[in-house]
Amino acid sequence: MTSSDVPDNRWSDLERPPLNVTSLRRALVRPGSLWTSLDVVTTTGSTNSDLVGRAAGLDEGAVLVAEEQSAGRGRLDRSWSAPARSGLFFSVLLRPGDGVPAERWGWLPLLTGVAVAGGLSRSAGVDTALKWPNDLLVKVPQDSGRLRPGEAPSGEERKAGGILAERTADGAVVIGVGLNVSLREEELPVPTAGSLALAGAVSTDRDPLLRSVLRSLEQWYGDWRAAGGDPAASRLQEAYAAGCSTLGRTVRAELPGGTSMTGEAVAVDGDGRLVLATEAGVQPVGAGDIVHLRPV
């Protein structure tokens, strides 16, 4: 049975019920809020692609959520797939142009990571680490089936989510988030993937998780905009460094063009770049894949 065959009944699947769009709108779309609209679709190719295509007719703060994505994308056009209603797959439309210089917009994916991690800490009781530039990591014990809800895992770090930012033709930014919530071990797309459930989340109810994440994103985005996008004045740079598991590790940066660089990740600079201490000296990395070579 596909997601389109499931009756429109919140309790048709007790284990993975649909999101309650009425409740979400009541909680999030209100006067004075960043969020101006919220739509939930049963399935789509990519919420980012949909929102980018519709951006010209939407106000800032539009939110599009999918119960299932058939063509979800990460960085470098990598695919992102998960069973229907097993995660949070959503995109938001932001228009930071008024008061925030374009050169600071590169902080938006990092800001989103900080916001998601904070929201999940409050609502799921899961410590989510940030891997530069856009991955969300959780710790999954070797025998995740024995982990009790709320128990702190001490196992391996696995990717539970990712963030993708795209510019629109009319000068806006669409930020997409994909997060594995209730996936079981046998449902993971690759062995290095994880989920909130496997990390011992106290709750996998997606409604309060989404509310918490979007409220956290609203707060961080508002503070960042009020500071003119300054990552230091808004305390964003400090918060990202505190939650970034890449810092302090020996890493390999696989750079555009097929080259690579190895060194210790020592800082995230004011432009959001990862700073590596290499044999050739200190080198900032603005784009690329980062491979963690040594655990903290």
Rank of each mutant, 00 (worst) to 15 (best):
R26Y: 00
N48V: 13
K139L: 12
G119A: 02
A165E: 14
T128S: 01
G248K: 03
V65R: 01
T2A: 14
N180A: 12
W220T: 13
A84E: 12
S203G: 11
P133S: 15
N134K: 06
D127M: 04
D39L: 03
V140R: 09
L76N: 02
A55Q: 02
S79M: 07
R104P: 03
G162I: 06
P191L: 13
P284Q: 05
V126R: 08
L274K: 12
W107T: 02
E218F: 13
V29Q: 03
R225P: 00
V266N: 07
R273T: 04
I290P: 01
A197V: 01
L247Q: 00
E238R: 14
R206W: 09
V63H: 08
D205C: 01
E264D: 10
L276C: 06
S23N: 04
L64Y: 11
G99S: 02
R146T: 10
E185N: 06
P7C: 10
A102N: 00
A169T: 12
Y240R: 03
S79Q: 08
R73L: 15
P191W: 11
D59M: 04
R10Q: 14
A115Q: 07
A227M: 05
T36S: 15
I175P: 09
G228R: 03
S37K: 03
A280W: 00
V268I: 15
